[in-house]
């Protein structure tokens, strides 16, 4: 959830556009939670067009207290399966609308959905053309078959973010308790409260993938030499350096930890912004009602 907050924080600063979000968990509450977070950050007026992608069936379909809490407490548009989209179709459609070589696919769960994408006929050409990289974190063991498929068939560069990159960086509970207080009802806070009893510091492995994907050149992390990634049957990722390889590993840089944590807390807790309209409003056009976060509403 904090990875999503970080992504929307960067989006709010116009450093990226979150064009589509999918969940690998075939559970409507998981899709609803993604949609709720998206809607919360879109409350500043920026419409997100593409629906949440979700596999129809598969592993790990049970709900969790975190998903129950977010889906129950926050506005979303997912009531039934046909409110969601097929994962491969929606990701492919998102790619088709991007400038060549300008998108990054960030996976902070199992590679299930990336496998669906790469297996959809005609999609590898779109990936090659549009995606700069696939950045993924260490959730390989949750779907080893999908990981093998992706690492074998992905037509572009892969960047693996191992868990040791973030071992020494924890997201402070104090930030979750204070920095999100601009909204009386915040999906990120509700998610963390539901996960386990507060206060607790949260792991940041998934946030590292987002920060690297968007601020690749800012030097928060070190990058390995080129090579080739592979996965064994037990779900362990192997990396073999090779001059003609297209893959990389993200490596920790302890000297940057303080800077990274500062970026995490500032960006993830940033208040949704009201975006400037691309076109100036027409005088006689009825303005759509812009929904503001709770704290913005006047009594």
């Amino acid at each position: 959830m904090l990875a999503l907050a970080l992504l929307y924080g960067l989006d709010g600063k116009n450093e990226c556009r979150a064009v589509v979000v999918t969940t690998s968990k075939p559970n409507l509450k998981s899709a609803a939670a993604c949609d709720a977070v998206s809607k919360f950050y879109a409350a500043g007026g920026f419409a997100r067009v593409l629906p949440v992608g979700m596999p129809e069936t598969g592993k790990d379909s049970e709900s969790t207290p975190l998903l129950d809490a977010v889906a129950a407490k926050h506005d979303h548009g997912i009531k039934q399966l046909n409110d969601t989209a097929d994962v491969a179709a929606v990701m492919r459609n998102a790619l088709t609308a991007q400038v060549d070589g300008n998108s990054v696919i960030v996976v902070v769960g199992p590679l299930t959905n990336a496998a669906s994408l790469v297996e959809l006929a005609g999609t590898r050409e779109w990936i090659s053309k549009k995606a700069k990289a696939l950045v993924f974190t260490d959730h390989i063991k949750e779907d080893v078959a999908a990981a093998k498929q992706v690492l074998k068939a992905w037509p572009g560069p892969l960047v693996f973010v191992p868990s040791d990159v973030s071992r020494d960086i924890q997201y402070p509970s104090s930030s979750i308790e204070k920095d999100f207080a601009y909204a009386s009802k915040h999906p990120i806070v509700d998610a963390y409260k539901a996960y386990k009893s507060m206060p607790y510091d949260a792991p940041t492995g998934d946030m590292a993938a987002v920060l690297y994907a968007v601020r690749e050149k800012e030097g928060y992390f070190r990058l390995s030499a080129a090579g080739t990634l592979s996965v064994d049957d037990g779900g362990s990722v192997k990396f073999a350096e090779s001059a003609d390889g297209k893959d990389r590993m993200l490596l920790p840089d302890p000297a940057q930890n303080e800077r990274i944590l500062k970026a995490y807390t500032e960006l993830a807790s940033a208040k949704p912004v009201v975006r400037q309209r691309f076109r100036p409003p027409v005088a006689d056009e009825k303005k759509p009602e812009v929904k503001q976060p709770e704290a913005e509403k006047k009594p």
Partner: peptide, 8 residues
Amino acid sequence: IVYRRETP
């Protein structure tokens, strides 16, 4: 019949 969104 209402299909899933983005169904081509």
